[in-house]
Computed example of a mutant assay.
Amino acid sequence: MRIRYLLLNAYGTGGTIRTVFTQAATMAGLGYDVEIVSTVRHKDEPNFDLDERVRLTTVVDVRAPKGDEPAPGPVGRYRAARRERLRKQGGRIVPEGEFGYEAFNRHVEREVVRYLKSVGDGILVTTRPALNILAARYASPRLIRVAQEHMNLGTHRPDVQKAIARYYPSFDAVAVLTSRDLDDYKKLLPGTRLVRIPNAVHSTEQEHSDHTNKIALAAGRLAPQKGFDMLIPAYKKVAERHPDWQLRIYGTGKKKNELRALIDKHHLYNHVFLMGHTDRMEDELTKSAFYILSSRFEGLPMVVIEAMTHALPIVTFDCPTGPADVITDGKDGILVPPKDTDALADAISTMMDDRELRDSMGAEALTTSQGYAPENVHMMWEELFSDLVRTSGKAAAAG
Rank of each mutant, 00 (worst) to 15 (best):
S179N: 14
T286A: 15
R221P: 12
R241F: 05
I305E: 09
R248L: 04
A216T: 08
I249M: 04
K255L: 14
A311V: 00
D184S: 15
V174F: 08
A261L: 11
V195Q: 12
H211G: 11
A234R: 09
G191S: 07
G276H: 04
T178L: 05
P313I: 13
N257R: 05
T204Q: 00
K187A: 09
I292C: 06
D318A: 13
H202V: 03
D244V: 07
L262P: 07
Y269P: 09
T252G: 13
P301I: 04
A219T: 12
G253E: 04
R193T: 12
G253F: 01
H208D: 06
L231P: 10
A239P: 02
H267Y: 09
A200V: 03
T192S: 10
K256I: 07
I263S: 12
D210N: 13
N257V: 12
K254P: 09
K186C: 09
D172S: 06
R221Y: 02
L293P: 02
P224L: 09
D229A: 02
L293V: 02
S294L: 12
T178C: 05
R248D: 06
K226Q: 00
T178A: 08
L268D: 08
N199T: 11
V201K: 01
P243I: 03
V303P: 06
I263C: 04
R260G: 15
A216G: 03
N199R: 02
H242C: 05
P243K: 15
H202W: 03
D318V: 06
E205P: 00
H271L: 00
K287M: 08
K214L: 11
I197P: 08
T178V: 06
H211M: 05
V303W: 05
R280Y: 06
P198T: 10
K237T: 06
F273K: 15
S295C: 09
V174K: 03
D181N: 14
L247Q: 02
F290S: 11
N257W: 07
S179F: 13
L231A: 05
A216Y: 13
N199K: 10
V304I: 05
K236F: 11
F297N: 11
R280T: 06
A261F: 13
V272P: 01
S294K: 11
H271A: 08
F317A: 00
L189E: 04
L231K: 08
E284A: 08
I305T: 09
D279A: 15
A219G: 03
L285Q: 08
K287D: 00
L268V: 02
G251R: 10
I305W: 04
H266Q: 01
T192G: 07
G191Y: 09
E240N: 12
L259P: 10
A234L: 01
